[in-house]
Design a protein around this nucleic acid. Structure first.
Lengths: 343, 343
DNA sequence: CTGTTAGCGCCTTCAG
DNA sequence: CTGAAGGCGCTAACAG
């Protein structure tokens, strides 16, 4: 079956030109909109292009030196629900501006990131959104080179750069303040990987809130997870094994809270009756957990939109270096309640 | 700050050639590996390339007619956890073969898909993985043209094509058979969108199992959702409003089960004591729900791997048309139990 | 083994 | 307003 208008043999601008009885230059002008072309010829060319099923070759177009209309996003792990929501935001902006989006996964591994970055440069992408909590290294900066980069939740570290991030420290503070206000004093924290700055900042916020309330931070109530369900589950079991009392847990992200919830359940603790639980991120799932999860909401989609917007402007050189911090907000749901005294 | 080896001004093969004192052809051969080059010159060229921070321009390379080393995947909604797991599988294979992956979202909208496809063809991607449950249309076939396409969970419908899918009908049957074996006779079904073939097939399997057991399918126990948490939640409330007895619910996907679980909870039903619940997909989350979710496991990651493998082979013309169906498997967890008689 | 020479498909001066 | 010609960066014959 040959579908009309979708040729099996690539048709070039030359075919259109000869079909319309004009030169390639005229076709180029007519189709790209640059330069003036008589209305009559213009129509004739459009018609010929349509009939032949001509599709301009963007490779040749970009080769000339222009933009490629393609940006890339590097995320640690697309399987973590936080990232798809972020990517969706980036994608939305990219599409609005007729850009395509390349997806790369780094697993938070600097070596992989460097390799991907090199590949992307060879492909001449217009820019990259770099997501992840690892601090910037020289290697990374070198691999980036002159590529416009917007980082999300990550320290920049190289000269010209743009970044957008949420207020992780403030969020950590809010989560713990909320628990303190409910009367909790023994508050455990399931942190993220110690190497990630976002995890460090949320932890720092947690400690600040504790100290501000005159509660001495207890190191044995802090366990590091991996930002995944399994990590949260294991972390909570570690906590249990330590046999230190706690009436609330602040999880560094919602996914860890899912695992913690399960571990608490298996151990016979009920949320929020026996222990209160707070998450971070407010992924879609949070409101559907039982109990629904009190959490610190990041404007995930907006983070993505903002990053992509900055990037696309940076790529055309119309935007000086800029570092945005977006506010977070506590969402009170059913996983937290006032502490039950004297048990 | 100028990072050595990462030039601000694009360095071309010509720069390397003159720096190494050879012709561009030799540099091309030395760097791409095709054709023989003397070891001495080879080293000299490699050294020059490294020092100058030369990055081959893949646009020019591909313009010559070769592959672009880029494939694309079109998914309905990256925010649904099923798709990231699938995309991860595709990505894994793509990366192994030094390919980049373009991510597009269609929202199951044919018009959007057609637009994206056209864009992808202009970019000369080597192939496309088309994911989604909508039946193929002529429009889509036309937009695909001569682009190698592997469909996942979707009817092909155009001439040369490859597809991979899970056994949805068989899975639907397994889910319901499991419930029947547990003694359930009033089994509700929260289906997916009626327009999607995967939803239709799971529903068909459900009915088959019912009939095979001599249970008359009851249309009022079937509600269509949207494959999201909200859809599952609403669907279950609809079911409740109908005031028909049921002791078990088979949800067409895990995400809907999350919503159903919550709605049941709010209505005072306990899972699995009052009603048993079965999902479909076995996304990561399923095992972390409380109770953990009995579900029909699709080999999601493998579906992705298979699709990408087929595509990459199809793209180089080394693989004839092929349609794979992967097996699914029932995973028994804690959300199902024998029916409680005489309540 | 290496250099020279054509293009790949398109855009963009520069003339006409 | 339109055509002819050069070149983007690279690869692939074809000669030496």
């Amino acid at each position: 079956m040959h579908v009309p208008g979708e040729p099996r043999v690539p048709v070039t601008i030359r075919d259109v030109a000869s079909d319309a009885g004009v030169s390639v230059a005229t076709v180029s002008r007519a189709l790209s909109g640059n330069g003036h072309v008589g209305p009559a010829t213009r129509d004739r060319i459009a018609e010929a292009a349509r009939r032949l099923g001509y599709q301009p070759n963007d490779l040749a177009r970009s080769l000339h030196g222009g933009a490629t209309g393609t940006i890339a996003v590097l995320v640690p792990d697309i399987t973590n629900p936080f990232f798809p929501e972020l990517v969706a935001g980036i994608q939305a902006v990219a599409n609005e501006q007729e850009n395509l989006l390349l997806l790369c996964q780094t697993g938070e591994d600097p070596t992989t990131a460097v390799r991907e970055l090199r590949h992307l440069r060879r492909k001449r992408v217009d820019g990259v959104v770099l997501v992840g909590g690892l601090p910037a290294t020289d290697d990374l900066g070198a691999a980036v080179g002159d590529l416009p980069v917007v980082t999300v939740d990550r320290d920049a570290g190289w000269p010209a750069s743009w970044s957008v991030r949420a207020d992780h420290r403030g969020g950590g503070r809010m989560a713990t303040e909320h628990l303190v206000e409910l009367g909790h004093e023994q508050i455990a924290h399931i942190a993220g990987p110690a190497a990630l700055t976002v995890a460090q900042e949320r932890l720092a916020g947690h400690r600040e809130a504790l100290q501000a309330s005159g509660i001495e931070p207890d190191e044995s109530l802090v366990v590091h997870g991996d930002f995944g369900e399994a990590g949260g589950y294991d972390a909570l079991r570690t906590l249990l094994r330590r046999r230190r009392e706690f009436t609330a847990v602040f999880c560094s992200n919602d996914l860890a809270a899912v695992g913690a919830l399960r571990a608490l359940d298996e151990a016979g603790f009920r949320v929020p009756d026996d222990v209160s639980l707070v998450g971070f991120d407010d992924i879609h799932l949070a409101r559907y957990l039982r109990p629904s999860l009190t959490t610190v909401r990041q404007p995930i989609h907006e983070l993505g939109r903002r990053a992509a917007t900055l990037l696309l402007e940076a790529a055309v050189g119309s935007r000086p270096e800029q570092h945005d911090v977006l506010d977070v907000e506590l969402v009170r749901r059913d996983s937290t309640r006032p502490v039950r005294r004297g048990r």
